[in-house]
Design a protein around this nucleic acid. Structure first.
Lengths: 164, 164
DNA sequence: GTCCAACATTTTAAATTTAAAGTATCAAAG
DNA sequence: CTTTGATACTTTAAATTTAAAATGTTGGAC
């Protein structure tokens, strides 16, 4: 439907109108970058470790917290719904990668930890994952990194500040 | 599970280890920002227009291309699988918001356009959507906008450059 | 002690999403 | 003309995801 005299990348930003607000441009650029990286990571995790991004994320959060996390904490940190976390936990538990134990002083709460097997499994994936991310973002100089981080901090602060 | 002497935001970045590579930090920051914005937009589209982000995205791409887009083009631009686009197209077509017409010189190809109803419906949503995005990102000065865009351009270029 | 609202989690149903297989069409080679 | 491989799209099955309802638990208020 489009004449292409020049090669054009097609992605979220293709929907931009000339009169669109600068903020819309920034948002679509952000979305495009994130989606591009996410898709690559997803594909590689599937190809090389037969796992998914949310499962990896789940284990990464636990690896970071050796004392364990509750289901609610996992839900917050992974930024997904509670039901979602329940489902992933069932899988990982079934594969012996995590333990769920009752917390003595609150019978509503579960404490989730990586098993030894889970910790080992994650270590392999984490090393590869880091290589992939560095490969994708490593072009940027340390100074650029700092600058983008600063800007995204500001952006994040602005969004967080809004109520609801 | 965590003592919180200070208020800590919980999100993807919570999984960061002290020794993690700068690129991982940047990636998780990017993911957190995108998810935060995406969740807010998703919730508002549902509350105020009883629709979803992918449906909005679909219509936005079409609004941008008055001559229509093929299913394949939509798939590329929305950065989702072809089957996904088929499903959304069925919905929107059922609601009379889009038309799918055969292209005369290629019977495999469908050309998708917004109906008048679809165009009107989208105009309302787009106005609100722009307000929301500006509300979230508007804190940044025009100079900041330019800088972040520049950096994300570079980041995008780096990721695109990788094969596969 | 008894309610009652809040909380932590799971379950449910519906929608979304994906990868892969399937269908139909095309274009080009022989 | 026929075959072949590529293309455009849809269908399928499985997994993911979400919002909302359901379950069980807690900690006051009274």
């Amino acid at each position: 439907m489009d004449d292409k005299a020049t090669v054009v990348e097609l992605n979220h930003e293709s929907r931009l109108q000339s009169e669109d607000h600068q903020s819309i441009r920034l948002w679509l650029r952000l979305l495009t970058c994130t989606n591009m990286i996410e898709q690559r990571l997803r594909a590689r995790l599937r190809q090389e470790f037969a796992t998914t991004l949310p499962r990896f994320d789940f284990m990464a959060q636990l690896d970071r917290s050796p004392d364990g996390l509750t289901m609610g904490e996992l839900s917050q940190r992974m930024m997904v719904s509670g039901g979602n976390v329940s489902g992933i936990a069932n899988q990982l538990s079934g594969e012996g990668l995590i333990d769920r134990t009752q917390v003595p002083d609150n019978r509503r709460t579960l404490c989730v930890t990586l098993t030894d097997k889970g910790r080992k499994r994650f270590a392999d994936m984490a090393a590869a994952h880091e290589r992939w991310v560095v490969e994708m973002l490593g072009d940027l100089s340390p100074a650029d990194h700092r600058q983008i981080m600063m800007h995204l901090t500001q952006l994040k602060r602005g969004v967080t500040a809004l109520e609801t």
